[in-house]
Write a protein that binds this DNA or RNA. Structure first.
Length: 510
RNA sequence: GGGCCCUUAGCUCAGCGGUAGAGCAGCGGCCUUUUAAGCCGUUGGCCGCGGGUUCAAAUCCCGCAGGGCCCA
């Protein structure tokens, strides 16, 4: 596969196009000019003169304007002594109309050597064709860049998913929706930054390489620092560092950056993924909920244009307020299970065994409640729903509920059947925190290699005084999936992780 | 990790024991308002890789690689 990508291998297409390049040089052209002649962007012209009734051909010609636009040649339709071509720039298209009698030398010869995929700049007045399409009547052509390899098929685009991910640039060129999705992702992320800054949060950066990976339960990637001769871990979460900043006196901080978790791939998981975490001194879980609703419904409205957006077969409403449900109530409702059975350890264990949950005999009741929730409820939570009152075993960094120390003041937001956000009233009692870490270490000794490691410096920071604090993480990739109706996380990550097609050169050297 | 499926021309796909096919793209013609332009002609293939079965394998069997979907 991907033979066309093999660099500089002899290839029918490359050879012919290299010959054309020589012919262009022979015409005396600078075939790799340093700058494009351009007075307007294609999007700009397409927008201003979009309305065919407001801008009929006579009126366009009456403007007496000359525009220069640059773009990649997407299609060429040759009609004897005239040629139509579509140029594309930034996802927008504009037609160029060449007539042999109109084009100044050596324009017509250049045209004969033009291929789909090349870049050109064209100059001329605007016009509208018989069929009403806005076009540039080309008087002058500037050749900008030769594509030596052909574009994917113009009608079907690039379909092969493997090649779409491996050669994302081809996917972006030939599948218009893909470029739109990633442009939208960019707008969503900048919308998030605007919102957070508007709420008084400061963006900070904390270590991606950590000596002790903390803040989440997950297997880390490990790497090595040569000069210090030490192991380092790619972070699984920034949490413990952001909290140190709260200790240090920041009131509100957020970070949007990559986390790395050494786990499998799926339509919802990529080993590196983007997360926003934020912390606000003096606040609690209720404040995090309100902010989350404001943020997400605001993004739906302001970036996507509606609080109700399509998601597969079923639209999702991001209108406030989102539904709230305790973990146990969610199990009861979606699993059609008598609520009272969830209050008793033996019956919880029996329910877990009934649905074949692994090690159901050995796990704690709280852990089993988490498993039952995942089994019965998670996939069914399509509309945004805050799940609250998590078992303490699943939440080593969270304050307990008032009056019930088996459960903690935490929510996870589920949407489209996915975990989208996770928030706590942060644990700030250093003695309690030390005990929770010890419980995690015991779990680790018992064989759970995802259990948290003790970070003594973090505990020390709490001992210097940590205010009450609300904290939350929001999965940015999943948020983009939801807002753009993308079924796979690979459709919202530009370069998802792929196995190499053959051993890389660095590996061969080692 | 388990199950199912895919891999054939640059791209999109047929073909499923008997000489390797189509559309688009390319190349050569015709055509001065086309838009999946049209018409005539034409080049292009380690049928993912390696074994096997067979007189004969793209096609059947086994293994490997890469990918996809579902489940855990």
């Amino acid at each position: 596969m991907i033979r066309a990508g093999a660099p500089m291998q002899p290839n029918q297409y490359r050879d012919i196009r290299l010959e054309k390049l020589d012919k262009l040089k022979a015409l005396g052209l600078d075939v790799w000019p340093r700058k494009a002649k351009r007075t307007h962007g294609i999007a700009q012209l397409a927008e201003i003169y979009a309305d065919a009734e407001a801008w009929p051909n006579e009126k366009l010609e009456g403007l007496g304007m000359t525009a220069s636009v640059m773009g990649r040649v997407l299609t060429i339709r040759e009609m004897g002594k005239s040629v139509f071509a579509h140029l594309t720039e930034n996802g927008e298209k504009l037609q160029a109309f060449f007539r042999k009698d109109d084009v100044a030398e050596p324009g017509w010869d250049v045209l004969k050597l033009l291929d789909m995929g090349d870049f050109v700049s064209v100059t001329g007045p605007l016009m509208r064709t018989k069929t009403g399409e806005l076009s540039v009547r080309v008087k002058e052509v500037q050749f900008l860049s030769k594509a030596l390899l052909p574009l994917p098929e113009k009608w079907h685009g690039l379909q092969d998913k493997e090649q779409r991910y491996r050669q994302r640039y081809l996917d972006l060129i030939s599948n218009g929706d893909v470029l739109k999705t990633f442009q939208t992702r960019s707008r969503i992320v900048s919308g998030i930054r605007r919102f957070m800054e508007g709420q008084g949060y400061l963006e900070v950066e904390t270590p991606m390489m950590q000596p002790i990976p903390g803040g989440a339960t997950a297997r880390p990637f490990i790497t090595h620092h040569n000069a210090l001769d030490m192991s380092l871990y790619l972070r699984i979460a920034p949490e413990l560092y952001l909290k140190r900043l709260i200790v240090g006196g920041f009131e509100k901080v957020f970070e949007i950056n990559r986390n790395f978790r050494n786990e499998g791939l799926s339509v919802r998981h990529n080993p590196e993924f983007t997360m926003m975490e934020f912390y606000a001194a003096g606040q609690d879980l209720r404040d995090m909920m309100a902010l989350t609703e404001d943020l997400i419904s605001g993004l739906a409205r302001d970036v996507m244009g509606s609080e109700t957006l399509p998601w597969g077969e079923q639209p999702i409403s991001y209108a406030k307020p989102f539904r709230r449900l305790t973990l146990k109530d969610a199990i009861a409702e979606y699993g059609h299970i008598d609520r009272h059975l969830l209050e008793d350890g033996d019956s919880v264990r029996a329910l877990a065994k009934a649905v074949h949950i692994e090690d159901a005999g050995a796990k704690t009741v709280g852990t089993l409640l988490g498993d039952l929730f995942e089994h019965h409820a998670e996939k069914q939570l399509i509309q945004p729903t805050f799940i609250t009152d998590y078992p303490i075993e699943l939440s080593p960094l969270t304050k307990t509920l008032e009056g019930d120390d088996r459960f903690v003041d935490r929510f996870e937001l589920f949407t489209g059947g996915m975990e989208l956000a996770n928030a706590y009233s942060e644990l700030n009692d250093p003695v309690d925190q030390m005990g929770r870490f010890q419980a995690q270490m015991a779990e680790r000794d018992a064989g759970n290699d995802e259990a948290m490691l003790l970070d003594m410096d973090f505990v020390t920071s709490l001992e210097h005084g940590f205010p009450p604090c609300g904290g939350e993480g929001i999965g940015i990739d999943r948020l983009v999936m939801l807002l753009t109706n993308s079924a796979s996380i690979r459709d919202v990550i530009l370069f998802p992780l792929m196995r190499p097609t053959k051993p890389s050169e660095t590996e061969e050297k080692e």
